[in-house]
């Protein structure tokens, strides 16, 4: 939870007060709860995990237990100002389809993901091993992360899908923003954050 503070703070900075938000993979509801209190946003969290659903309910967050891989078909077009996907993109079955869905039901999308281009991952791959790091703590055989990408990969996909990136940030594993990160984001950034909309 501590480790996610900065990425939540960056997301909170990006979001206009009193907007309607859909949080995909809302976890224990911390982000929506924070946004509700600090930005007066309203909306829903979608979550699959039983424990997280109960925690969200306990927190007073509107949570709907659902599998993101089943899509967002029950939500009408343009129902939300923002659709957030925080550290979940890499774990869904159809990332490109989900991005499209995000921009169907919402005006803007916000995505955060662990950057596979982070130098530590590159070094581990060069040594012939699948990367394991603080942002990617799983072994290859038990990881839920099936669609890892780098900043460049993500930006390529956005171009291909006609998605315009409005804002982006990278942070390190302590979720700090440093000068080096701004110069070499794809190498030094451990977590990437993007805000985007249809071009």
């Amino acid at each position: 939870m501590n480790g996610r503070r900065l990425d939540f703070r960056i997301i909170a900075d990006w979001i206009r007060p009193q907007s309607r938000v859909l949080d995909l993979g809302c976890g224990d509801g911390t982000l929506l709860d924070t946004l509700a209190r600090t930005k007066k946003v309203s909306g829903y969290g979608l979550e699959l995990d039983d424990q997280h659903v109960t925690e969200s309910i306990r927190r007073g967050v509107n949570v709907i237990q659902t599998d993101l891989d089943a899509g967002l078909s029950e939500f009408d077009d343009h129902s939300f100002d923002y659709v957030i996907l925080s550290l979940t993109l890499q774990a869904v079955k159809y990332p490109e389809r989900l991005l499209r869905e995000m921009l169907r039901v919402g005006t803007e999308g916000i995505v955060t993901f662990p950057n596979f281009g982070y130098w530590v991952s590159r070094v581990q791959l060069l040594r012939g091993r699948m990367p394991v790091s603080r942002a990617l703590p799983h072994e290859w055989y038990n990881t839920p992360n099936i669609h890892l990408c780098t900043l460049q990969d993500f930006e390529d996909l956005c171009r291909k899908e006609g998605i315009r990136i409005l804002e982006s940030e990278v942070v390190d594993h302590e979720h700090r923003r440093r000068l080096g990160l701004r110069l070499f984001p794809n190498l030094l950034g451990e977590i990437a954050l993007y805000r985007f909309r249809r071009a």
Binding site: S42, S56, N62, I64, Q65, E74
Partner: peptide, 20 residues
């Protein structure tokens, strides 16, 4: 889920859980 959808279509506060 049909009930849930109709509730969130109206921007109402709703939570839903499916119990195994």
């Amino acid at each position: 889920r049909e009930i849930v959808k109709a509730l969130h279509d109206n921007d109402l506060d709703v939570s839903y859980a499916e119990i195994k």
